[in-house]
């Protein structure tokens, strides 16, 4: 049985673990953070509905949001005062601008540099 290619790409377990670890280090709980996200993304006047339905369960173990929502989570977290004062940096770049092979090689290089610093 093949996996449907229509499924939007999702955040990986490692990425979600990293997000949760950063939230924890900022003294933020994941569930209220998801509700805050739902409120932010909701149509005006539909905040409660969004909180209770649209994003219900994203804080549950083993549930991984699609990549667009995951990016939104980070966008929101980056703007949070507790993250801004946390001495942590979440690197960000826009992919697909440079030659594909060169980009892959430089991303690998970037990971090697980070690993070497740890």
């Amino acid at each position: 049985m093949s996996v449907s290619s229509d499924m939007p790409p999702r955040a990986s377990k490692e990425e979600m673990d990293e997000l949760k670890a950063v939230l924890k280090s900022c003294s933020l709980d994941f569930r209220p953070f998801c509700e805050y996200l739902a409120e932010e993304l909701a149509e005006p006047g539909h905040e409660e509905e969004s909180k209770s339905e649209t994003y219900r369960g994203w804080f549950k173990k083993g549930r991984f949001p699609d990549r667009a929502l995951f990016e939104k989570m980070w966008e929101l977290l980056r703007q949070h005062d507790l993250f801004r004062s946390s001495q942590l940096v979440k690197p960000q770049y826009v992919s697909g601008i440079v030659d594909k092979d060169l980009e892959a090689a430089l991303v690998a290089l970037s990971k090697r540099v980070t690993d070497h610093m740890k």
């Binding site: 990293e18 670890a21 950063v22 001495q87 942590l88 940096v89 979440k90 690197p91 960000q92 770049y93 601008i97 440079v98 980009e103 430089l106 991303v107 290089l109 970037s110 990971k111 540099v113 980070t114 610093m117």
Partner: peptide, 26 residues
């Protein structure tokens, strides 16, 4: 673009002081 990819190509969270060292390394 070369610098940006070297510094930010790895999306993992790093501490600010390590990020500054990474900038210099790149």
């Amino acid at each position: 673009r070369l610098m940006n990819l070297c510094i930010n190509g790895d999306p993992r969270v790093v501490e600010r002081n390590r990020y500054l060292i990474k900038e210099e390394t790149c």
